[in-house]
Design a protein around this nucleic acid. Structure first.
Lengths: 191, 191
DNA sequence: GCGTAAGCAGAACGGAAATTCTCTTTGGGG
DNA sequence: CCCCAAAGAGAATTTCCGTTCTGCTTACGC
């Protein structure tokens, strides 16, 4: 049965998801139509539906991609032998924020308030990032500050919680900074 | 010209906006149709369009209402003679969060990434709340901690910034806690 | 190489939802 | 208390968009 080889199939899925992320960053989750993604990806509607069950499925895939990419940045720091101090860590994470991805990230929050599946994706990633932060801070407390591992782990929890909160807030600021590059006007100008 | 008296007109607008907020909290900004708001408010579509130019306009009004209500809670604390300490202040603000309003608040963030008008509403309120926090913390630093007003005002700035960030993060958590009371299934269960 | 079942393009379909239109009701001013 | 324009109800309209369907094309397995 001549199916696409798995590698090629994944490539197509990624091609679609990445185009979707670009569209979402530009126009928002609900305002981007399948036609938009069609145009951005260079593929056809039929093709998209061969790779994703429906639009909601594609939105979730795009969300997973954006969120996972953010976790990866953090993961790189967590893997270091001597992790940076909390302030420094936060500063670097904030500096690594990409405005377009921040917008999609915040849009996924909004969607998550309504769609349980999206909520699961968001909370799962939030928990994973917080755990990563926890590891990072624990390692810093023990290696750079010379605190007992057990005590460090405990202290790190509240610090990680706060770091996560501050990071999320920064993500929100980044998402709102340049309102929108070229959003279609919503027709409410002159009364 | 027998128009509605201003008081009555405002009453109708509020009636519609409040119904809209309830719907948005339940189903999200984009998923609630005018028909939903019609059912919730007990008014007709024609009537709604007599009070709001279009759906986007109504969404903005609802957002303003929810956001303003949050600012009011904070404003009450800011007006006190001896404001609470930052930790206590944050704890009280968090305790005062209503899940349904939190959901709408987060949805407005998502919308703001796309709609410049909504972005202006959100950033305006954020700035105003931060300013209120700033006043609160400054007052606490001077009155409870006995710090010079000028120095207090300066120190308060970064504290207020952090408080705002932590509050926003808590709002997000509250919005995602019980995923959704009764969301319509998105049809993606069995492959 | 070659056949075939898939991927894929693009038009067609169906439905939903915002906005508008028309007719009825009603509240306020004289 | 009466008139009339505006408020309101609810159906009609229209536009738009997700999804599906129909063939052509292509890439994989033999």
């Amino acid at each position: 049965m001549p199916r696409l080889t798995d590698a090629r199939r994944e490539l197509r899925r990624a091609q679609i998801a990445e185009a979707a992320v670009r569209c979402f960053g530009r126009n928002g989750l609900e305002s981007t139509s399948i036609a938009d993604i069609t145009a951005e990806s260079g593929l056809s509607a039929g093709s998209i539906y061969a790779h994703y069950r429906n639009k909601a499925d594609l939105v979730r895939a795009a969300a997973r991609e954006v969120l996972a990419r953010r976790a990866d940045v953090l993961g790189a720091y967590a893997a270091q032998e001597i992790p940076p101090a909390p302030d420094e860590l936060l500063a670097r994470l904030v500096a690594a924020i990409d405005p377009a991805e921040a917008r999609v990230g915040v849009q996924t929050w909004g969607e998550a308030t309504t769609d349980p599946a999206m909520c699961a994706i968001v909370t799962d990633l939030t928990d994973r990032m917080r755990a990563l932060l926890h590891d990072c801070v624990t390692a810093w407390l023990t290696r750079a500050e010379g605190i007992e591992p057990a005590a460090a782990r405990e202290q790190a929890a509240s610090i990680a919680h706060r770091l996560m909160a501050l990071y999320q807030a920064e993500l929100l600021y980044a998402a709102l900074r340049p309102p929108a590059p070229s959003a279609p006007p919503t027709s409410e100008d002159t009364p």
